[in-house]
C-alpha cells in the first residue's frame, strides 16, 4: 500500500476507507469543541437503540495546549478523525487495522499494540473502556467502547475510533515538526496554521476577555436550560452545552478558575449534557423508531 503522502491524502484515504465500510461521511460540526466526541453525531447518536455508523473530521480546540507555534507537536487547534460504529462489530479491531494499512502503515513492519487506556469525559458524563493504539511506541489512535454517555448507560455499545491526524501524518511523512507536514503538494501545514497557532495562543492565554467569557458561560447555560423546558429542543440545547464547555475551557486556559471552582464548573456542564441526552432520547430520532416503520 502506498503511503498517504500528504495531510489531505491521509484524510481522503480515511474517508474512502470508512465510506467503503458503510459509514456515513459527515462534515465537521460548526461549533468550537475540545474533541470529536462532542459532535452530536457521537454524543447523542451513541445513545438509544438505533444503529449508527459515521465518520468525520472534527477540528478540536484545546485552548491550554497552545504553544504559540513553537512546540513541535502541541497545538491548540488540531484535527481529529472520528469513526463511530454502533453497535461495535465483532471485527472492529480488524477493521481498524485495515485503515492503518490503507494509509500505508504496514503492521508487518511495525509494532502495533493495544495498550489499556480507559476513557472518561467528566464534562460529558461519559465513560468507556479501551486502549490507546501504539505504533512503534507512538500513540496514533484512541479506541473506546462507550459504556455511558450523559450519565446514561448505552443501549448498544459503540466503538469510537479517534485518530489524531497531525500525529499520524507526522509519523507517515517522517516529519518531526508539525508545521513541516505537507498539507498537499504545494502547502506546508505551517503555511496554513502557524499564524493561527500564534494568534490563538495569545488569545487563549492573554487576550480573551474573561468577563465576557464568564457571561458567555452563564448565557449558554441559561439558554440551554430554557430550551429544555416546555417543548424540548434537544439539538439546539446541546449546542448551548457545547458553547458552555468551550467557554469553560478558555477560562481555564486564562487561569481564572481555581481548583475547587473547576470541579463545580465541570459539574455544571455535565448537568447540561445529561439533560440534553435525556431530551434527545425522548425525541423522535433518539427514541426507538424502527427504520422502515
Amino acid at each position: 500500500m502506498a503511503k498517504a503522502r500528504t495531510f489531505q491524502d491521509l484524510i481522503l484515504t480515511l474517508q474512502n476507507y470508512w465510506a467503503g465500510h458503510g459509514c456515513l461521511i459527515l462534515q465537521p460540526y460548526d461549533n468550537e469543541m475540545g474533541a470529536g466526541t462532542f459532535h452530536p453525531a457521537t454524543t447523542l447518536r451513541a445513545l438509544g437503540p438505533r444503529p449508527w455508523n459515521a465518520a468525520f473530521v472534527q477540528p478540536s480546540r484545546r485552548p491550554s495546549d497552545g504553544r504559540y507555534g513553537e512546540n513541535p507537536n502541541r497545538l491548540q487547534h488540531y484535527y481529529q478523525y472520528q469513526v463511530i460504529l454502533k453497535p461495535a462489530p465483532a471485527n472492529v479491531q480488524e477493521l481498524y487495522l485495515g485503515s492503518i494499512r490503507a494509509i500505508g502503515l504496514d503492521p508487518d513492519l511495525h509494532d502495533i499494540r493495544f495498550v489499556e487506556d480507559d476513557w472518561e469525559s467528566p464534562t460529558l458524563g461519559a465513560a468507556g473502556l479501551g486502549w490507546e493504539v501504539w505504533c512503534d511506541g507512538m500513540e496514533i489512535t484512541q479506541f473506546t467502547y462507550f459504556q455511558q454517555v450523559g450519565g446514561i448507560e448505552c443501549d448498544l455499545v459503540c466503538a469510537e475510533i479517534t485518530y489524531g491526524l497531525e500525529r499520524l501524518a507526522m509519523y507517515v511523512q517522517n516529519v518531526e515538526f508539525v508545521y513541516d507536514l505537507a498539507f498537499n503538494d504545494e502547502f506546508r501545514y505551517g503555511e496554513v496554521f502557524h499564524q493561527n497557532e500564534q494568534e490563538f495562543s495569545a488569545y487563549n492565554f492573554e487576550r480573551a476577555d474573561t468577563e465576557i467569557l464568564f457571561q458567555h458561560f452563564k448565557d449558554a447555560e441559561k439558554q440551554c436550560r430554557e430550551l429544555l423546558t416546555g417543548k424540548k429542543l434537544a439539538l439546539p440545547a446541546y449546542d448551548q452545552c457545547i458553547k458552555a464547555s468551550h467557554a469553560f475551557n478558555l477560562l481555564d486556559a486564562r487561569g481564572v478558575i481555581s481548583v475547587t471552582e473547576r470541579a463545580a464548573y465541570i459539574g455544571r456542564v455535565r448537568a447540561l449534557a445529561q439533560a440534553c441526552c435525556e431530551a434527545w432520547l425522548a425525541s423522535p430520532m433518539g427514541a426507538y423508531t424502527p427504520r422502515f416503520a
Binding site: P72, L109, I112, D136, G137, M138, N174, E176
Partner: peptide, 20 residues
C-alpha cells in the same frame, strides 16, 4: 513483533517518539 528488517523501522519509530 518480529519484522523482516530486524526491527529497524520499529527502532527508528521509537527513537522518533522519544525525541518528541
Amino acid at each position: 513483533m518480529l519484522t523482516k528488517d530486524g526491527g529497524k523501522e520499529i527502532v527508528a519509530g521509537n527513537e522518533r517518539v522519544l525525541r518528541a
